[in-house]
Each structure stands twice: as structure tokens, then as C-alpha cells.
Amino acid sequence: MIDHTADFGIHVFGSDSKTLFSNAVVAMFDLLTNINSLKGREYIDLEISGEDWADLMVNWLRETLFLWNGREMLVKTASIQSLTQQTLSAKVTVDPYDPERHAIKTEIKAVTYHQIQVYRNPAGWEAKIIFDV
């Protein structure tokens, strides 16, 4: 977790770019709720576009966060079907929010561009993303 007085964020790793994008969504929803309590019985297909890796990452997280903020669904897993620097298609598994079963740990209100980083490291891929909470 990255610390910031206004917000907080995540530092995510992946052996390849697809794993990185998939991990980022799981990390975000793991901050939001106890991801182990999710069953992920429903799935949703998503198509995302962006200008570059960073923009694509923000748009990807924005879109999945909207599933929560706009549609009251919690994401358990994300499987990235195809990925380029400008486009991503994915299948995410979700649970409709049930206040009886799902605890909300932190309300994440938005994904920001603030100090956004998505890059390749010697061992794989890394990203840093800050949320407005």
C-alpha cells in the first residue's frame, strides 16, 4: 500500500503485463472488501481502451470500480483475454453486493492519475496507482 495524506494506493506486481492488470483489479477489490468472501458466480466481459499503459490501467480500474460504485457488484477475479498498450479485453467474475455477507473495508471513490506508474522491471511488470478514498 502507498501512503498519501489525501488518499492511498497500491503497488502491484506481475510476471507479465496480463498478470499485472489482473492483479491490479484484485488488489483494488481486496482493499474494498474481503475478497475471499466472494463467490464470483456471475461474469462480465469488458473492453477497455487507453492512450498508453498508464492511461489503460486507469481506465481499466475505473471501469471495474464503476461495477461497484455504479452497479453494486464486487469483483473477485479478472482474466485478461487480450492486451496491447491501447486495448484490453477481459472477463471478470463478480458477486452482487449483499450487505449481510460482504463487509466493505474501505470506500474507494475514484482511481486517479496522480503519480501513476506502469512499467516493466527486470523480473516482470510493476504499477503504482493512487485512489481517492
Binding site: 492512450e51 475505473r62 475514484a110 492519475y113
Partner: peptide, 13 residues
């Protein structure tokens, strides 16, 4: 939040 986010996305392009 949604208004801000929508326009941030558009304006960054």
C-alpha cells in the same frame, strides 16, 4: 464523482 471522472478521462485525451 462520476462527472469529475468522466471529464478527467475525456480531457486527458
Amino acid at each position: 464523482y462520476q462527472i469529475c471522472d468522466d471529464f478527467l478521462a475525456r480531457m486527458s485525451q
